[in-house]
Structures are given as structure tokens and as C-alpha cells.
Design a protein around this nucleic acid. Sequence first.
DNA 1: AAAGGACTCATACCAAAGTATGATTTTATT
DNA 2: AATAAAATCATACTTTGGTATGAGTCCTTT
Lengths: 140, 140
Amino acid sequence: MRSIIIPFALVLSGVVLLLLIAQYSVISANVSQEIYIGAISIAFLALGIFISRNKKAKRVLVKVDDIPIDSRKIEELGISKREMEVLELISEGLSNQEIADKLFVSLNTIKTHTANLFVKLDVKRRTQAVTTAKELNIIK
Amino acid sequence: MRSIIIPFALVLSGVVLLLLIAQYSVISANVSQEIYIGAISIAFLALGIFISRNKKAKRVLVKVDDIPIDSRKIEELGISKREMEVLELISEGLSNQEIADKLFVSLNTIKTHTANLFVKLDVKRRTQAVTTAKELNIIK
DNA sequence: AAAGGACTCATACCAAAGTATGATTTTATT
DNA sequence: AATAAAATCATACTTTGGTATGAGTCCTTT
């Protein structure tokens, strides 16, 4: 929101300024119209490029990290909500005990979830689960 | 290079077109100059925004996946070549035994490497080693 | 030649991860 | 209300991972 206000102010003041210039050009009517219009066109073109350059770059940078999570695949593999939570915590490097503590359930429950997860992802180890899940865009 | 040619052609044809419009506006001299100039300004502003929007996005998108490996950090942490190999294989989800087989060394050797790696990365588990190493841009 | 770093390997022991099986309780869905 | 799926937990067991320590070999650099 705020990032729109500043360029807008620039545009408006630019328009006012150029209208004033245009008026003067009518008074000192020697210089041809085409040159003025051309100059104005180029100036605004540059302004437009300038405005969208700065902000766009950063916005896209953020979005690239957001490769969308493939919820179709999650369903397809029959991975439940709780299993997804566990998978994400595994990918953050937590131990089963730490996951159990964080989710307020027993260690055995986490072991069950991971075992089911490994079958669904067709892997044998948690590290493999993470790489496979990332390849499938199931986790970030 | 090529990506500059098309917008340039657009700009030039736009200028020509607007100059023609401007000429007609002199002939049908009823409409005030300011409105024409304003319209031209806005049109070119939009053109400028449009031009830089499309190209910039893709260029940045490509660059983000290529976050360079921070070899300074690797040195700084004193991680050796062999340790890096092990770290990469860990991040691919291999077990210690599989890594040992792949590198033609004993399981014990891999255990030694991982233990040293964990000290250098200040982590306790292989999964944590992977997330930390990725955060530090030590591995892809 | 000596010293240091990197790489190798071993033994032994403890901790965590993973497997298998069975069972109870929630929570949706029909 | 009945059924099914999801979530919970337990016990018992095996495998893998991780820690600690010591030691030998091979380079490289002083």
C-alpha cells in the first residue's frame, strides 16, 4: 500500500510540471511541438521503467522461494494433516523427541507418524523423506 | 540483447504514432494541448511500466535458484573436502553405510567425518546439519 | 627431517531412529 | 447412530546414528 503512494506522488507532480512546460512552449512558440511531445514521451517512459524496476525485483525475489506446495500430490499420497506437520518438523532438523514435545504427544505417536510417512513417501530414512518431499513440492 | 530490441521497436513506433496524433490535434485545434500532453504522458508511463515488468521478473527468477556456494564460510568453519562430500551425500538422504560404500571407505570413517562435521556446524543430528548447511549456503 | 592437517580405521558404548503389531480414542462422513 | 479415517499410545525389538578415544598413513609446508 505505502509503496504505491510515493510513485503516484511522483507521477502527479511530473504531470503538473510537464503541463507547465507545455504552456510555456506555446508562449515561446518557436520550438516545434513534435520535439516537446517526444521529450515528454521519453521522460515518462523512463519514469515508468524506473518506477517498476526498483520494487519489482525485490517482490519477485521473495516469491521465488514460494514454489507452491503441491496439495494434489499430498492428497494423492494420502498424507494426513498431522503427518504433514511431523514431516515439516523433520525437515527443520528436529528429533522425534523434540517433535513430540512440540506437538504435545508421545514419542511413540511420532514414531507411528514417521513410519506411516515413510511408507507413503516410499523412503527408508528421515533424511530421504525430506529430499523426496522437497522434490515432490510437498514441503518448502 | 534480443530482449532489448522488441521494446525499443515498440517505443519508436509509439513515438511516431503519438507525433501523428499530436499533428492532428493541431489541425482540429479545439481540444486543449494540456489534455493531449497528459494523455501522452500517461500512455508512455504505462508503456514504461509494462516493458520493465515482463522482463525483470524472469531474469530475477533464474538468479535466485543459483545462490552461490559460500566457499568463504566453508573455509571459515574449517570444513575439509572429504567432509563436504559426506555432507552433500547426507543431504541427499544417504545412510552412513551407503556413503561409505559410495566413497569406498569404512563405515567408521564416515562416522568420524560426520562427528567432525557436527562439531564444525554446531549441530547434533544429520538432519540439522543439512538445514544449517543450507542456511549458510554451504550446500545447494 | 619434522610438524601439522587431512584422511583413514578400530573398538566400545550409548542414544536415537525405525519396524512390527495391536489397541483405544477422536473426529468426520454417510 | 454407524462406519471409516485419523490420531493417539504402548511394548518389544532391530538397526542406524552419534560419541569418545586412540592410532596409523599420507601429503604438504616449513
